[in-house]
């Protein structure tokens, strides 16, 4: 727990309030999943991908089933309206989630010779939540799309032992 408290940016010596906060984290740390405290929000993760640049809606199509039978393997396709020429192409596609232990899912690197800006993969979703695709273009602009997924749980899951 100490490690996570230290990981917060802090300037100067700890003040009393911060010490109390750290203590509270340790107490709750026993009962709460570590990751729930540690993970940055979806917005924070996207901000570190874009470097804080403005994000526009459009150009990105995020295809993911709205209702999935099992969160362990969820097919995702991101397609971007782009001519994929040297002057105008997709350079990066970032995939993020709202409620897994970690906000990042994948970052894909593309070049004009991809011909088409389309990538598919399979992801894990710990629970029903939002998924976002953020795309960086060669002109430095960012575009995004998001979707909500409901994850149903199997009735007879295997015991973990």
């Amino acid at each position: 727990m100490l490690h996570e408290v230290r990981a917060q940016p802090s300037i100067g010596p700890l003040r009393r309030r911060e010490v109390l906060f750290a203590g509270a984290l340790c107490i709750f740390g026993v009962a709460l999943p570590r990751a729930a405290l540690a993970r940055p929000s979806l917005e924070d993760a996207i901000r570190s991908f874009t470097g804080g640049a403005a994000i526009q809606a459009g150009r990105v199509r995020l295809a993911i089933p709205p209702l999935v039978e099992n969160g362990n393997t969820v097919g995702v396709t991101v397609a971007v309206d782009s001519p994929m020429t040297g002057a105008d192409h997709v350079t990066r596609i970032g995939l993020f989630n709202e409620k897994n232990p970690q906000a990042e899912v994948a970052v894909f690197r593309l070049w004009p010779r991809a011909g088409r800006a389309q990538v598919s993969t399979r992801i894990r979703l710990a629970t029903s939540q939002a998924v976002a695709a953020v795309v960086e273009m060669s002109d430095g602009s960012f575009w995004s799309s998001d979707a909500s997924v409901i994850v149903t749980l199997a009735a007879c899951i295997e015991d973990l032992s």
Binding site: E104, R109, A114
Partner: peptide
């Protein structure tokens, strides 16, 4: 021609 950085949320 293509690369990816993957996180634990990849199946």
């Amino acid at each position: 021609i293509f690369s990816a950085v993957l996180f634990p949320a990849i199946a």
